[in-house]
Every structure is written in structure tokens, then in C-alpha cells.
Amino acid sequence: MRKKLIIFLLIMVALTPLGLISEYSAWGEWGVEEFQTLVGYIPEGVKDAGINAPMPDYEVGNLGAILSTIISAIIGVAMSFGFFYALKRIKVK
């Protein structure tokens, strides 16, 4: 099982740069400036909301889009495994 899952995840990671083909953000996931174009103002609550994520939009430093995407994908896989291996060890009442 393990070998097949590893191959499956490697293929999935290799496919993630396909997501870069889409130059548009999802409907309702716009950047702050896009509100100006859409409704003519930026809603108060949208300004300065959220955190400064270390790798915003799956961009890792200045590594370029494809490499950034693949590194982000690998980090995502590592976090998924880390989370559930940790959860298996933690005692929950």
C-alpha cells in the first residue's frame, strides 16, 4: 500500500503547477484592489484583514511560480502527515 500511495502523491504534486494556468482568482476570493473595480470602493472590513502568511498564494520567496507551487505542495503533504502522525500519539480523553 505504501509504495502505491507514495507514487500517487508524487503524481499529484507534479500536477499542482497545472493550477497556475488559471490567471483568475475564484469568485469571491478577490484581492483587496479587486473590490475597487467591482463595487467602486473597498469595504471597511476587508481592509487590513487577515494575517501575513509566510508563503502568500503559494509563493515561496522569489523562487518562481512553478518551483514555488511544487515546494508548497510538498509542504502541504508534509503537514498532512505530520498532523495525523502527531494526532495518533496524542492522548485524547
Binding site: V13, G19, S22, Y24, T69, S72, A73, G76, V77
Partner: peptide, 9 residues
């Protein structure tokens, strides 16, 4: 995680 990264226009 990975499938959510593949945005489809």
C-alpha cells in the same frame, strides 16, 4: 490539499 491547489479556469 493538493487537489485544492489545482485551480481550473
Amino acid at each position: 490539499f493538493l487537489i485544492m491547489m489545482i485551480n481550473i479556469p
